[in-house]
């Protein structure tokens, strides 16, 4: 499909820069980022294209496929980018823009709610069973006591992430699987 470059969102690039992708303009499309990307060949996440789309303001095309959520944040592109354009930071910034528009993967909402309610990204109940099995000492982390969880909740309450990550007041963990941790 032919793209008319005038019909773009000129504010996108400014927003991305404000949200952490400060050096997106440095990109000169060499392809170093995409060539070392672990997900490029299996997903729609094409980081070189995304960098270009940001400077052109093609917000719809970026958000359309939700590909920015397929980045493993391995930082290989950021490490090797010859212009220090920090592509991974641009991905983070785009995710922040995306979250503002209400587009965020369910799994991340799950992780966030786990952290909000349990103090940890994974369920604690199963953890304690496993600890007993291997004779691990008594759990002393946030998940061990309601007072620490209250503390974390208070912190999250005072940030945008409370609404952006759709924190629910009544939350039951959906699964014992590890969804994400880094």
């Amino acid at each position: 499909m032919k793209i008319i470059l005038n019909n773009n969102n000129k504010e996108l690039v400014n927003k991305v820069m404000e949200y952490g992708g400060k050096r997106v303009y440095e990109c000169f499309q060499c392809g170093m980022c995409a060539s070392g990307c672990p997900v490029a060949s299996d997903t729609e996440h094409k980081i070189k294209r995304t960098m270009h789309q940001v400077t052109l303001g093609l917000e719809e095309q970026i958000m359309d496929k939700k590909a920015i959520w397929l980045c493993t944040t391995c930082f290989m592109c950021l490490e090797r980018c010859p212009q220090n354009a920090e592509p991974t930071e641009v991905v983070f910034a785009l995710r922040r823009v995306s979250a503002e528009n209400g587009i965020i993967p369910e799994a991340q909402i799950e992780v966030a709610n786990n952290i909000y309610h349990l103090g940890h990204a994974v369920t604690v109940e199963k953890g304690i069973k496993l600890r007993n099995k291997v004779n691990a000492p008594l759990l002393k982390t946030a998940g061990s006591d309601k007072k620490y969880i209250d503390e974390i909740q208070k912190l999250i309450d005072s940030t945008h992430s409370y609404s952006l990550l759709r924190i629910e007041k009544d939350w039951k963990p959906k699964r014992d699987d590890v969804i994400g941790c880094d």
Binding site: M1, K2, I3, I4, L5, N6, K48, H52
Partner: peptide, 12 residues
């Protein structure tokens, strides 16, 4: 044409 986008483009 935009090589990176892999699409035809035009600028008014």
């Amino acid at each position: 044409d935009d090589d990176t986008l892999g699409e035809q483009i035009s600028v008014i």
